[in-house]
């Protein structure tokens, strides 16, 4: 009987069926209630539903005509919030050790002028920054890995913010060390500009290599590789071998020049592209992705 109620409410039932339904309704309260609902739907006084095409057109037109909210302040606030949040995830041991190592380098140059300030800074600043960058990228071992995986913010942006914090801190340390040495005159005739030029290129190059290897193979391999390349510079370009084509090539690479900076920028770009992908060897427990 219930199946006949919509047609009864619309007035489209044949006479025989309509009479049968009318008799049933006299005795059935539940069907009377259902009929009231069907009659409300079939009422000619109801507002017709909106035209979907017109609705979408109206929304799009309104969206196009409404000026956007001023976004730069929000972006800046968002970026500042990200930097603050990422700064909390950096282990305090890393900036403290970096500062101690840099201070030790400056102290030794001031105490013993046997090794030039340029050489000491050119060798200390890059390894401090590269070790910091290697230790900063911890991927799945990050204490906030689950939160990072669930956040709508891009993982690349988070990595960029964290690397900027660590590298920026080491950059500031190296500039402060150069300024201190230039101010005290311990650097001999070297100006502030000369001192910065001595370490900037190697620092950027070794850090970019360290980041790329950390993203691809993990922080431990990155630290080992950075120390290995740095040791090549110390041994082949200075302590053990001073002359020869290989030594000259190593020293040439360990300077600030356009090709070194360009290669560093390219390596960093590749690292950030790779950072958004799964590292090799990852196995998903429940589903292939």
């Amino acid at each position: 009987m219930k199946d006949l109620l919509p047609a009864y409410a619309a007035g489209s039932l044949p006479d025989a069926d309509r009479e049968r339904v009318r008799l049933h309704l006299a005795d059935c309260a539940r069907c009377r209630a259902d009929l009231a609902s069907w009659q409300a739907l079939a009422s000619p006084h109801r507002e017709p539903p909106p035209d979907p095409a017109a609705l979408i057109r109206g929304v799009l037109t309104r969206s196009a005509l409404t000026p956007p909210e001023k976004s730069p302040p929000r972006r800046l606030r968002h970026l500042a919030g990200l930097m603050l949040a990422e700064a909390r995830l950096i282990r305090m041991a890393v900036p403290i050790a970096s500062a101690l190592v840099m201070a030790l380098g400056v102290g030794l140059v001031l105490w013993q002028a046997t090794a030039g300030a340029e050489l000491v800074l050119a060798l200390v600043a890059p390894i401090v920054a590269a070790a910091g960058v290697a230790g900063t990228y911890r991927s799945g071992h990050d204490p906030a890995a689950e939160v990072v995986a669930a956040t709508p913010t891009s993982g690349r942006l988070l990595l960029l913010v964290r690397i900027a914090l660590v590298f920026g801190y080491d950059l500031a340390l190296a500039v402060a060390a150069s300024a201190a040495l230039a101010a005290t005159g311990a650097a001999g005739t070297a100006s502030m500009n000369t001192l910065v030029t001595a370490w900037l290129g190697p620092m950027v190059l070794l850090s970019s290599i360290s980041l790329l290897i950390a993203v691809r193979f993990g922080p431990d391999v990155a630290l080992g590789a950075a120390v290995g390349l740095w040791a090549v510079r110390v041994l082949v370009g200075g302590v053990l071998v001073r002359d020869g084509r290989l030594a000259r090539f190593v020293v040439e690479v360990w300077t600030t020049n356009a090709p070194v900076l360009a290669v560093s920028a390219a390596l960093t770009t590749v690292a950030f592209i790779l950072a958004g992908r799964e590292p090799p060897g990852v196995r998903h427990a429940t589903h292939p992705m």
Partner: peptide
């Protein structure tokens, strides 16, 4: 230090010095 990066920096610094 409980940090490989910081420990590595200490080792390389002593070696370099």
């Amino acid at each position: 230090l409980r940090s490989p990066a910081a420990a590595g920096a200490i080792v390389t610094t002593v070696w370099a010095v």
